[in-house]
Design a protein around this nucleic acid. Structure first.
Lengths: 230, 230
DNA sequence: CCAATAAGATAATTATAGCTATTTTTTAGG
DNA sequence: CCTAAAAAATAGCTATAATTATCTTATTGG
């Protein structure tokens, strides 16, 4: 039986793989969109992916679903992203960036220049509220945080961000706690960053207790650093 | 063209669904294995699932792969577990149980009956080391923790455990910190449990710094609780 | 307004995932 | 040692995931 020659199957076969290769994948975006229409598509893919994470979760998220919701077809999506993980990576990069920016601005604007424990708690708390805000505003923010944990390549994105933030904090702390070893201070910044991130996740999950989570985490972290002075 | 009647396709069709329904699934185990052989199969499925999580990650984990590695066929697996998530849930249940047991034993054996801050730090540190140990011994322990975050139904398992542990801690703390409100103490136990869990994940991910992570987390948590005395 | 290029649509392909009806083999109790 | 129940194997099915070759439509710089 000869090949059926329909309008779009001219005897050459497609080469879908059915499953993405999770290792060895290129994760960077492809063509940067130049036209306005394309920029909209690009952004729509990202924001819809975030929305879908909230609606259907990570397991049910698929490129086909994203396309359907965005009103585009797969080739349009694959013009910008080489694969599904690249979309998630872009989301991860962006979320980390907005979170990092909050912390960096906080440090640069003197968030660490505090005296009393009470001041430190309050300053810390303000920073955490800022991080919570940008995360809540981010489409699917909490889900992006979770997904980053289960995809090794995205975990690296997160760790890079953690290190960036921890370094920034370290820089500001170094002068403040001169008699604490470099190593200890580095460990401390990493741990408190992680604890803060966990608290943010909890706060989004249980909005009713969000205030309490921020309050207590601020107390915990500030009290901890304060103990370095002794 | 008539149906091909091979040895096992007798004209009735199978009814595979191709994708699991992530919502609305039964997650409990089915037949409890009675024969020894069956118990081995049951345990093999669980421990191999843990191993595979480490080897290939969550995304590549599939029932077919588990079967292949366990030397069984899908129907054997599906005799015990109604679907893939039930396997993960059993792993989650078990990991939470061994972790919880460490904490409960620690409380019951007087882990909270400490006086000085130094004693509290040391006691806390012993408990965390215990939790780290059982988690490291658990096949795929760190991965199970991660996976629980991205599958809502498993997240519930984790939250139930958190609440159990937090309640146990709360019980012990209630007497120790009489002038702290119930609500605040509950928030505190939940947050410190979460922070501890994050630290365990970090410790497994970066074994070289595991000691430091436990040390500092103990300090952070103990210092925080200690501040309640003021 | 037209050519070049960007953006998107059509229509499939392949792989593999989850799962199962049915038959065969083990196991263990009488 | 024989038989009923338990356990596992045979051999698939169906759905859907990711992805693509090719063609068409929009956009824009000249």
């Amino acid at each position: 039986m000869p090949d059926k020659m329909t309008a779009n199957n001219r005897g050459k076969t497609g080469r879908g793989r059915g499953q993405a290769m999770v290792d060895d994948v290129e994760l960077n975006t492809k063509t940067e969109p130049s036209q306005d229409r394309a920029k909209n598509t690009f952004e729509a893919i990202l924001s819809i992916t975030g929305d879908l994470l909230v609606e259907v979760g990570f397991e049910r998220l698929s490129t086909n679903l994203i396309c359907k919701r965005a009103g585009i077809t797969p080739p349009a999506l694959y013009r910008y992203f080489p694969n599904k993980y690249a979309i998630l990576k872009e989301l991860g990069d962006r979320l980390m960036k907005v979170q990092d920016d909050v912390v960096i601005k906080w440090v640069d604007s003197g968030g660490l220049d505090t005296g009393s424990l009470e001041e430190e708690i309050a300053s810390n708390r303000r920073m955490m509220a800022g991080v919570l805000d940008v995360t809540k505003d981010f489409p699917g923010g909490a889900w992006v945080l979770r997904v980053m944990r289960v995809i090794p390549l995205l975990r690296e994105v997160q760790m890079e961000s953690r290190i960036l933030v921890a370094d920034k904090l370290y820089e500001g702390m170094r002068a403040k706690y001169p008699n604490v070893s470099d190593e200890r201070l580095q460990t401390a910044t990493l741990l408190t960053t992680d604890a803060g991130s966990s608290a943010i996740e909890l706060a989004i999950e249980e909005p009713d207790r969000a205030e309490a989570f921020l309050d207590e985490t601020s107390v915990m972290v500030a009290t901890y650093y304060h103990s370095f002075l002794k």
